Amino acid sequence: MPFVNIKTPEAALTSDQKAEIGHRVTEMLVEYFSEAARPHTMVLIEEVLDGGYYRADEPFSIPEAYRAR
């Protein structure tokens, strides 16, 4: 069973964008594993609390311009 875990900053994506990512990732995996993989493919999109992870030793907060509207 293909399993993909995507972590993204909280509020960076809309529900529609997350659904599109889930669909497109599934399509990509079906290309590699065949149509038989579709019903068993899991795409998990986890939202990480803003400031809940670090980049270059500094807490990361998503810039306002990149927040979902």
Rank of each mutant, 00 (worst) to 15 (best):
Y32T: 14
R67A: 00
V48C: 01
E10H: 08
Y54A: 15
A19I: 02
M1W: 07
L49K: 13
A56N: 14
V30H: 03
T41Y: 07
P9S: 13
D50C: 04
F3I: 13
R55P: 00
L49E: 14
A37T: 11
P63E: 09
H40M: 05
I62H: 03
P2D: 07
R38K: 15
Y32Q: 13
P2Q: 07
P59E: 08
P9A: 08
A36W: 02
E46M: 02
A65V: 09
E46N: 11
D50V: 03
Y66R: 11
E31D: 15
T8S: 14
V43A: 03
I21Y: 07
P63F: 05
A56C: 11
F60D: 02
P59Q: 13
T14N: 03
T41Q: 09
E58G: 00
E20F: 03
A11I: 01
G51S: 06
R69A: 12
A68V: 06
T26S: 13
M42C: 11
F3K: 08
I6A: 04
K18S: 06
L49Y: 00
E64V: 13
E27G: 00
T8Y: 03
E27C: 07
A37Y: 06
R38A: 11
I6R: 01
I45V: 08
T26Q: 07
R24E: 12
V4I: 13
A11G: 07
Y66P: 00
L13R: 11
F3W: 12
E27K: 10
P39S: 09
A36E: 15
E35C: 02
F33C: 13
V4A: 12
M42R: 15
S34D: 14
F33W: 12
Y32H: 12
E31T: 15
P59L: 10
P63C: 05
E58W: 01
P63I: 04
V30I: 14
Y66A: 09
L13D: 02
M42L: 14
F3G: 02
V43L: 03
G22I: 02
P2W: 06
Y53M: 10
G22S: 12
A65M: 08
P59F: 07
E10W: 05
A19Y: 01
E47N: 07
G51P: 04
G51N: 06
K18T: 06
R24Y: 05
P39L: 09
S15F: 02
Y53V: 01
A11P: 00
V48H: 00
M42Y: 13
A56R: 12
F60N: 03
H23F: 07
Y66G: 02
A36P: 01
H23Q: 14
A11C: 08
H23D: 12
Y66V: 00
E58L: 13
T8C: 14
Y53D: 08
P9K: 03
A11N: 15
L13T: 01
A68Q: 03
G52W: 05
A37F: 05
T26V: 08
P39V: 09
Q17W: 06
Y54Q: 10
K18M: 15
A37V: 10
I6N: 01
M42G: 06
G52I: 05
R69P: 09
